[in-house]
């Protein structure tokens, strides 16, 4: 894989939905930077507009205001500029593992056997070599997420958008997959934007974490994680790691209680 990362910059991005009783502001004035090869996370309680922000960056939704710059350019149509991994794996039941991974290539007009030739080394390299011919229903939840991630990686995009990729997994599988993801990402070198609601996950994977508060979704604080790489599971016991976790937890509580007071002041 010879992917270079992209520079992603959000400036004052906002999203309003018009409803029956006035507009609902989902996301308001979000500034965010992810430089070439950085791993950046967005964390916040549900309803803080993380996924909306994500869909805007992916090009699935239009922002109501602000700018989204990829390598300094503001594209009208961002679909295809990044590779997107949805919350649920969204594997296609009717494609074998290898063909799910090669899906984006086939959509670009690559022949199926050529798509398979390119998907195979990726599957073998990252521990799925035995499952190439399996149907998705034959895989466990963790395996499905691995396939979904390799499907995201194969497109050779400089920006990967991961929307709560491990949200539905149990704790043990999740920790295992975080390490696996860390390994794959370190070899791919793309810029990653991750949405998560898991504090430990955010700290373990990220270079920088943006904390969001709900209603309207705003960035309330930014935390730099300067823990050494490559990171290992052992580091999670480290005092420095725990200190970052603690700080993040405080910031999240602050974001929540600010909203709580605001909500409480409503008649």
């Amino acid at each position: 894989m010879t992917v270079r990362g992209a520079n992603l910059e959000l400036r004052g991005v906002a999203k309003r939905f018009s409803g029956n009783d006035g507009d609902v502001v989902a996301v308001d004035g979000v500034d965010l930077v992810a430089r070439d090869g950085e791993f950046v996370s967005l964390i916040g309680p549900s309803g803080c507009g993380k996924s909306t922000l994500f869909n805007i960056v992916a090009g699935l939704e239009r922002a109501s205001g602000g700018h989204v710059l990829i390598n300094g350019e503001e594209l009208c149509d961002r679909l295809g500029a990044s590779a997107y991994m949805p919350q649920h794996d969204a594997l296609l039941d009717w494609r074998r593992v290898i063909d799910n991974v090669g899906l984006s290539l086939e959509l670009q007009g690559v022949r199926r056997d050529e798509a398979r030739r390119r998907a195979l080394p990726l599957l073998q390299r990252f521990g799925l070599g035995e499952f190439t011919r399996a149907w998705p229903w034959q895989l466990s939840g963790g395996m499905r997420q691995r396939v979904a991630f390799l499907r995201t990686v194969i497109a050779d995009r400089p920006l990967l958008l991961l929307d709560e990729p491990f949200g539905a997994l149990d704790g043990i599988t999740r920790a295992d997959l975080q390490q696996w993801l860390n390994q794959v990402w370190s070899e791919v070198g793309a810029t990653v934007l991750l949405v998560t609601h898991d504090i430990s996950e955010a700290v373990f994977l990220s270079d920088r974490i943006y904390v969001m508060s709900p209603r309207p979704g705003r960035v309330t604080s930014v935390i730099d994680v300067d823990l050494p790489r490559p990171r290992t599971a052992a580091q999670k016991e480290d005092t420095r790691f725990l200190a970052v976790e603690q700080r993040l937890r405080h910031e999240l509580n602050a974001a929540m209680s600010a909203w709580g007071e605001f909500a409480g002041s409503q008649p």
């Binding site: 869909n55 090009g59 679909l79 295809g80 997107y84 949805p86 899906l103 959509l107 670009q108």
Partner: peptide, 8 residues
Amino acid sequence: NLLRTMRA
């Protein structure tokens, strides 16, 4: 949505 981000 996934396929749309792949420009299908």
